[in-house]
Computed example of a mutant assay.
Amino acid sequence: MANAVIEYEAKILDVAPQELARIIIDKAGSKVTLTVKEIVSDDIGGAQETEITVSDFDTTNTLLGKLGYRAKAYQENQRQSFLLDGAQLEIDSWPHIPPYLEIEASGKAEVLRVAELLGYSEDQLTGKNTTKIYADYGIDLKSITDLRFTE
């Protein structure tokens, strides 16, 4: 069984995706993942994540249903993935809110260092999860059972 790992990540809200993409080295490929994320706090190291790559969203969803799991909501997002100086960078776009950049690295100091390389300071970073980011925009994500880019 896979072990959960502490996830050292921070987000920078309301970014310009095209401008960021120009200064980050692109990571090729796309993948579908199944992730269980346990949020302990809003700190940079405040989440534990267990993730596995799966070959197909619909088949994985069917398998989970056969194991007795039921979806509480459907949520779409779009993600651009990059590698920069040893850190994983994700530009996440979600319906109804501005895009944000997520920086994930081997430790808090590395997250801060890579943020600085991109021109951001520690006070511009947040460890908030997506539900709390939606709340900042006045949207109760927990009450939305179907979140799509086109409705």
Score class of each variant (00 low, 15 high):
Ser121Tyr: 03
Ser106Glu: 14
Glu102Ala: 09
Leu125Gln: 04
Ile91Asp: 01
Leu118His: 03
Leu101Ile: 07
Ser143Asn: 11
Asp146Gly: 02
Leu84Phe: 12
Glu90Ser: 11
Asp123Ala: 10
Asn129Glu: 13
Pro99Ser: 15
Ala115Ser: 03
Leu141Tyr: 13
Thr130Val: 15
Ile144Leu: 15
Ala105His: 01
Asp85Cys: 06
Thr131Phe: 14
Glu90Leu: 12
Gln88Arg: 15
Ile91His: 00
Tyr120Leu: 06
Asp140Asn: 15
Glu102His: 07
Leu83Trp: 01
Asp136Asn: 13
Gly119Trp: 03
Asp92Glu: 10
Glu110Trp: 01
Thr126Leu: 09
Val114Met: 02
Asp146His: 14
Leu84Gln: 13
Pro99Gly: 09
Glu102Val: 10
Gln88Val: 14
Tyr120Lys: 09
Ala109Met: 06
Leu89Thr: 02
Leu141Phe: 14
Leu89Ile: 14
Glu110Val: 02
Asp85Lys: 12
Thr131Pro: 00
Asp85Thr: 09
Lys128Tyr: 05
Asp136Ala: 08
Ala115Leu: 02
Gln88Leu: 15
Asp85Ser: 14
Asp85His: 12
Tyr137Phe: 14
Ala135Ile: 05
Asn129Tyr: 12
Val111Ser: 04
Val114Ile: 15
Val111Thr: 04
Leu117Ser: 12
Tyr100Phe: 15
Ser106Cys: 08
Pro98Gln: 05
Asp123Lys: 13
Leu125Thr: 05
Asn129Ser: 11
Leu89Asn: 00
Ile133Ser: 02
Thr131Glu: 12
Ser93Pro: 01
Asp92Gly: 04
Lys132Asn: 14
Tyr134Met: 07
Ser93Ile: 08
Pro99His: 07
Ile139Gln: 08
Ser106Gln: 11
Thr130Gly: 10
Ser93Lys: 11
Asp146Phe: 13
Ile144Lys: 13
Ile103Phe: 04
Val114Ala: 02
Ser121Asp: 12
Leu89Val: 10
Asn129Ile: 10
Arg113Trp: 05
Leu89Lys: 00
Arg148Glu: 11
Leu112Arg: 04
Trp94Met: 10
Leu83Phe: 08
Leu112Tyr: 06
Leu89Phe: 01
Gly107Lys: 01
Leu117Gly: 02
Ala135Gln: 15
Leu147Pro: 08
Leu141Ala: 13
Trp94Cys: 10
Asp123Phe: 07
Ile91Cys: 02
Gly138Gln: 07
Phe82Lys: 01
Tyr100Asn: 13
Leu112Ser: 00
Lys142Glu: 15
Tyr120Phe: 15
Glu104Ile: 03
Arg148Ser: 13
